[in-house]
Design a protein around this nucleic acid. Structure first.
Lengths: 138, 138
DNA sequence: GTAAGTGCAAATGATTTGCACAACA
DNA sequence: TGTTGTGCAAATCATTTGCACTTAC
């Protein structure tokens, strides 16, 4: 419960029914949804919301830095509302589901200059891959 | 130069001109190509090769475990021929290019049982994000 | 000779876009 | 009231597929 809505309002984000619903669907989730899943849940609360609006809104939240875009495979991108706390991802190799896990004292692996090939590094991501309980038992 | 061709022949992979060219294009690369880039380079050597064949062949190399599929964003997947040595990736947030970097004694972060949420973990990936020299200077 | 690979073109799935209409500030 | 957001439908991009043809073994 990080009160995404609160933060957005504080930033002067123009509020509409559709935007509120999208933010509400995302807020506090630790299992990340695809744009289509967000749309499906949004429709439950606001039947006339369109897919395009959900895509636009998600894209906007990403550029505001309030939501992270996570792509793990060629399937749909997933949206992670926990852009604040540093965390890692657990990804199911079979169904593509993603959930957050929290840093366990992992040494923020640093890359020596000789291995940077001129890149300016701004972020390091750690992803654990495996099977989620549902896929493992199927 | 890991001689991908050698290994494939050794595994009894049915060889054709198209498959040879695809394997040759990938072999030894440390900067990873998209399917379309592989196709473009393959066409230079074998003008009549089709995109579908390149896709088929790449998919096959992936299921043989000889090539790794890397997806970092919603752009095209990229193919990494160094499925053997463990390594990490350096990704340009702007143009999407990817290159290998080699482990620098980083402790393969382990995830405690309490943070696994029932997942069976089989792999850990580390990705460095930033800007490549070209995009940084642009 | 025959199973397997290839090319083409059409199909698919996720996401984006153009544009007329509607609604927040 | 004017700028910004919304919905629809059509467009785009990467990738996959169906199917008749060709080829490695």
């Amino acid at each position: 419960m990080s009160d995404l809505l609160e933060r957005l309002r504080g930033r002067g984000w123009r509020m509409t029914a559709q935007r509120r619903v999208v933010a509400e669907v995302l807020d506090g989730e630790h299992v990340h949804l695809t744009a289509d899943e967000v749309h499906a849940r949004a429709v439950e609360r606001l039947p006339e919301i369109s897919r395009a609006t959900v895509y636009n809104t998600l894209g906007e939240l990403v550029s505001l830095g309030e939501v992270l875009e996570v792509s793990t495979d060629r399937r749909a991108k997933r949206y992670d509302p926990n852009a604040h706390q540093p965390h890692q991802h657990l990804v199911c190799a079979h169904c593509g589901s993603i959930r957050d896990v929290h840093p366990t004292g992992n040494p923020l692996t640093d890359l020596p200059a000789t291995e940077r090939f001129g890149f300016t590094i701004s972020d390091v991501e750690v992803t654990y891959r495996g099977l989620c309980p549902d896929c493992a038992s199927a």
